[in-house]
Structures are given as structure tokens and as C-alpha cells.
Design a binder for these strands. Sequence first.
DNA 1: AGAATAGGTAGGCGATTCCCTACGCGTCAA
DNA 2: TTGACGCGTAGGGAATCGCCTACCTATTCT
Lengths: 118, 118
Amino acid sequence: MTAAGVRGEAEADRVFAALANATRRAVLRLLRDGGPQPVQALAAHFDMARPSLSEHLKVLRDAGLVSEQRSGRQRIYRLEAAPLAEVQDWLHPYERFWRDRLKGLGELLDRMPDDDAT
Amino acid sequence: MTAAGVRGEAEADRVFAALANATRRAVLRLLRDGGPQPVQALAAHFDMARPSLSEHLKVLRDAGLVSEQRSGRQRIYRLEAAPLAEVQDWLHPYERFWRDRLKGLGELLDRMPDDDAT
DNA sequence: AGAATAGGTAGGCGATTCCCTACGCGTCAA
DNA sequence: TTGACGCGTAGGGAATCGCCTACCTATTCT
């Protein structure tokens, strides 16, 4: 969030854009399942040149989705899930659109207003 | 999903990329809160030229986030939340990273493996 | 039929994305 | 201290994005 729990549009843009790439989602998954790791360990899973992965890591850093901790000549990357929690918050007001549909209510709910952020 | 509940990377790319734009998120919100609407009603909320909004609607359509129903010379757009439900599914395996942290467990969980899709 | 309305498509333009190869910088080993 | 290692940055190139102004089609109103 930017100020008081309010997520700026620019930050949401960065987070969603960071997630809009299979390599970056795979990195997040590796950090989630394998814990904090140096760049080499991550790079071993991909075909691309290592500097390209470095750029993906920068995108993830700028989105706040990972953090780095220097240890000798390595950079240990760690998953930072806070932005994902905000994505979940963003999703909340949409939930009724698939939960209610499953209950067979169909299009009945398409006419009742509501309100929240973004 | 592509085949059996499995979301393809390409589809995830399209959905996240569609969400990575403030105008498109605003459109989804308008459809969520205001129900199905023709393009004019949506366009009234934005400064950009109408053809630009048309292109945004195409991106949302290609991501499966909206559908259109023709009514006379109008196109009524409707929110389709299924891809958002898949985003929520994608988020699930990450939840413990912010839920546990709130409980003060901190970095203790960064070393236990796991597994799922994408 | 002719004009107006709703909305998509074509094509152009600057900015950004994603990949690459080269290179620079700090750290550890000989 | 010299070399190898770990990683980031620079810069270039093809593709895509997001916006615009024309323009075209389909429908509805006179």
C-alpha cells in the first residue's frame, strides 16, 4: 500500500505486470517451495542467459515481490508475499461473481451496486 | 483452464497482463458495480479516445475477463469472473507466507517444500 | 433512402518488454 | 595479487503496448 492501506494504481500495475510472465511466476514458485536462494540456484531452472534472469529479478524487486540479502559474493533472494496479499484483497469484491454463480444464481446479481478501492 | 483444470502459462500471462493496467481494472470495477453496460456507458468514465477503450475491451475479452452480448447497435459488456477465480487459486499456495508472518512465525517457514501448479 | 449513432479496425508513433552479448564490480581462492 | 566466480548494468534489436486519428460496418431514426 502507498499511504493508509490504499494501493496506488502504479503499484498495482507493477505487481500485475511482474506476474504477467511465466519465468517470473516460476521464480516466485521456486522461492516459495525452495526457500531463499542465490541467483545461480534459480538460474539453473531456466534456459535463458543469466543476465536476463537478473532483469526478471529486478522487475520482481521493483514490484516488492522479492527481497535480496547479500552474503559474500552471492545475493540471496527471498519471497516477499505482501504484494500478493494485496492482490488477494483486490480480488475480494469480485468473489461473489463466481461463488454465487456456482450456487446457480446466475445473472441475478449483475444489478446490485457495491464499492471499494481501485 | 486449458484441459483439466490446468491453467496454461499463456492464459495466465494474458490474464495478469490484462490486469496490469489501471484503465482495464477500472472497467472491471465498473462492470462489477454497475452491472452489464454498453461501451458508451463505460467510455463516459475515461478521458481517452473511444477507440482506445475498444482496444482495452479487446484485451479483456481475449483474457476471458469480459464477454459481449450484442443488442441492436450496442454491445453490452459483462464481467466474466472465472479467470479471477483462477488467479485466486494461483494465490493459494502463497497464503501461508503472509498469514504465518502475521502470527509472528517470520522466516521460520522459508525452508519447507511444497508443490502445485504454475 | 439518407443521416445519425454505436462500436470495431487500420495504421502510425513513441515507449516499454524481453531477450541477447559485452562489460564492470565486488568477493573469495591461490 | 592475480584469477575465477557471482551478479548486476549497458546497450542493442525485434516485438508488443497504449495512445491517437482516420475509416468502415451495422443498426436505428426521420
